[in-house]
Every structure is written in C-alpha cells, then in structure tokens.
Design a binder for these strands. Sequence first.
RNA 1: GCCCCUAUCGUCUAGCGGCCUAGGACACCGCCCUUUCAAGGCGGCAGCGCGGGUUCGAACCCCGUUGGGGGCACCA
Length: 502
Amino acid sequence: MTEQTPTIATRPSGVRVRFCPSPTGVPHVGLVRTALFNWAYARHTGGKLVFRIEDTDAARDSEESYHQLLDALRWIGLDWDEGVEVGGPHEPYRQSQRGDLYADVLARLLQAGHLYEAFSTPDEVEARHRAAGRDPKLGYDGHDRSLTAEDRAALREQGREPVLRLRMPDHDIVVDDLVRGEITFPAGATPDPVLARAGGAPLYTLVNPVDDAAMGITHVLRGEDLLSSTPRQVALHEALTDIGFSTGVPRFGHLPYVMGDGNRKLSKRDPESSLFVLRERGFLPEGLLNYLSLLGWALSGEQHVFRRDELVAAFDITDVVGAPARFDLAKAAAINGSHVRLLEAGDFSRRLVPYLQGAGLVGEELTEAQVQAIEAAGPLVQPRITLLGEAPGMLGFLLTPDDALEVEGAARSSLREDAGAVLDAATSALEALSDWEASAIEATLREALVTGMDLKPKVAFGPVRVAVTGRKVSPPLFESLEILGRVSSLARIAALRANLEE
RNA sequence: GCCCCUAUCGUCUAGCGGCCUAGGACACCGCCCUUUCAAGGCGGCAGCGCGGGUUCGAACCCCGUUGGGGGCACCA
C-alpha cells in the first residue's frame, strides 16, 4: 500500500468524464444537471464523455427507466462519445453485463491483501459497540480484519458466508476537489466498506471505481451526496493501482445539490423535478439547458441567456459554486421565454404543433388551413408566452369551428350594457369593408366604434374580441380577425350578438 | 454523537485585497409604449450571518461561532 495519497492521476492525456446513473425512477433535473456539467466539461476541454449504466441492483432497476434516461438526454441535446447505444472500446457499458471483470478484480484484490473476508453481521457489530460503550451508529468496527485462516474456516463450518471488505488505509485521505478545494478525511473516520456480498455479488462501492479505472476516467464529476464516499473510493483506486489494474486516482469534483422549495433537496414529489413534466409544460430544450447550467454556475455576471455553444466555450468545472442551488420555476420559465423569443418564426410555429396536438386542437395530420393559421398566428403569440404549453390557449380560437367556439364565463361577464350596440356597429362596418386586412380592419373599426360611438378603445374592441376569440385575453385583435377570415369573424360576432338577446 | 460540505439582495449569481457608496438576472413595485395580454424601454426596492484577527486597506485571507445541508448500509 502506498504511503501517501496520490490525488492527481497520472493518466494519458485528455479529459475523460462519465455520466453513470442507475436506471431507477423518472429522470429528474438534478440528474440531468449532473449529466450536463459532465457533458459541458468534456466538450469544453475536447475530452470524451462516457455514458455508463449502473444497473447492479436488479430489484430497483428497470428497462423502462433506462429508456427514459436515453430519451431525456437526447431531448435536451446531450450526446456522448462512448457508452450504451453508441459503443466504444470498453464495452459493455451496462454493469449488469460486466460481472466477469468484477469477479476477477475481486480475486486479485483479495489475493493482494487489500480485501478481507468479514463474517460479522450488522447486529453483531452494533452489539460490540454497545458492549464497549461506543455509539452504536459508528459503523463497521474492523473486527474481522485480524481473523486467521482457522477462524474463517471455523465460521464457515457454522454455515456462515463472508462479505468482502476493503481494508482502509490508516492515514488521512486528502482529496483536492475541483469545486471545493482540498478536503481532508481523517484516518479511521471511514469504516471498511463492503465491496461484495456473500456469494460475490458486486456492490456499487466496488463497481463504480473499478469501471472508472477500467474506462480511463480522469475526472469524476458527481453529486454532493457522494462526497463522503470519496475516501473509500480513493482507497480503492489506490488498491487498484497497487495491483496494476489502474494508473492512479481520478480527480473529483462534487456538484452542489439542486434544492426545491423550503430547504429540502428537490424531491421526486415536486412535479417540476421531473424532466418530462417540464417538457410537457413546454420548456424548450435549449431554454431548460440554459437554466440548468445556471444552477451552481454562471457564464458571467452579466449574461444570463446563452446558447449551447456559448456554454461550452465558457464552462469550467472549477468555476462551479459549492453551495446548494434552488430550482426556481419562475426563473426557469423566464429564461425559457427568452429562448422562445430567439426562435426563428417558422421554427417556433413548428415547435408548437405537438402542444396543439396534445390539446386536441389539431390531429396527427395538419390540414393546409391549419398550417397556414398556425404560421400566420405564430409570430403573434411568440412574444406572449414563456412555455410552449401556453400556446393552445392562445391559438384555440383559430383552430375551432365557429359553432364550437365557447365564450368563457369571465369573458362573457366582462361585457357591458352597450355590447350589443358595439357588435351591431362592428358588423355594419366590417360588412362594408372590401379589403380584409389587419390595418384596414383596425381603421374601419376605430372609425365606427371609437370615433362613431365615442368609446375608449378598450371598451370598443372588447366585445369584438370576446365574440371572435371567446376570451378576454387574446392575440392582437385585428391580426386575429384577418387570419380568422371575414366569414368566420362575422359569424362569430353575429352569434354573440344573438346570444346577448337571450 | 462522529465526519464532511456550505454561507453576497426573497431566489440564482458576479466578485477571486484597493476598480464595491457591492454588479447582473428572476420575482416584486412604478413609469413609458399600447386594441386585451404580453414583449420591449426606463426607473425603483432589496444583500456581504455574527465575533475576532491579518493588512495602510477585507465581501474577498486566517481563526472561531451560528445557521443550513449531507453522510455514518451486505442502496446507488
């Protein structure tokens, strides 16, 4: 065993980072943020991102979750250089398929004396702590470290099977964390961890560092929750180096938590923690990517809205902040709104389609008229929404047959006594209009209602807006009338007029 | 209990000893623009947890303290 703790890996050139989730549950924003920072660091440095799946817990892992992980990464636009789906020189990239490697490493580690067989049950460990007047929560006490071959044989006689524990070094372990700086873990503070169950089933404690070593990972960028497991990982890397399996210890960088409301970690109970919920609400991949990168990092003090390539150009793991960041849905939406506004008009309209389909306003196949209406109205709603999911509400009136249009209660009750007269005047003016175009519509309606009836614009146009869109709030009225067309517009005004009589 | 992390406006952050009477963004509040609602423009409110040092000088360095978070599994 080495005397000193090497904290800087001596590796071939080039940054190699990895993203290695276990496929349990639905992808959440904290997970994606971790993937994002690994990706950004790889792209910034010209290094490689490895995507590995840690599915050694058959009870909790699921194939569905695996596919959701792929879906999530692809949607937000993170690609990887090696790993599941794309292959690479270190296949396979699913730990459930790497059992032979782990068994081999375990055997070599055991033979070299870095591992030992431990027979103590958790109850026995706790009982020893109590008997000695120590805190029972102290963790494993190292009791089996000194078992002789005879001792072990005797225990086996009793039908007991040992787990394999790593012999932690008796010196302090110093980690130069890329985001937190130098951290010292006192000798003896980390109990000897179990690396394999009785029977040999490998645990995360073994498999994660072994694969990092096998895949030549140079920088381990992961969640803060794993910070306290770092000393045992460093110790394992040292042992792996000692047996010639590895060439050193990777650098570590521990990313801050993503918090929810209050002072809790963002939990799966929070709906906004689910990437897919966010996507359904209408986040743009580039908008969410932008916001997520702001959780613990900043491009500069001044620029908050930026593109993917600007992120890559500027991102450095050493600039990441160590303190937890709160996920603020309002700010996320605001950043998204900025990206919505940045979209080219045609692009924006096309991205609306899935949300209109989801709302049942259009079918699988769009009609020519629907395409035209969406493209014409797109620019009207683009500055008015922050999430694409808001679009159906604003565009619904254009994609609904005249006789199916429903006037919202609040819109209906906003009408004053003179609404009928306003609608009558609007009808006369519009029927006489030869050129059905927004500016002409505006001119004639202003003349008839504002000038002719001496009404304030808000009062004058309100009833027309309600008649045509069914709502108090809508895209700009005159453009909306133009897009809707003369026939439908007049029909809707007439319908509301008739309705007022009742 | 032990170990570790962390601390600038309500929130996310810039700041890396003098450029700081602390900058930006979100939120909030005004005003302008305006056919509704937005967008946009202009302005405002609001912060270095506390106590000691070090220094000519501290948001920045050191020590302590308090608050917050995490870990102490045959889960990952």
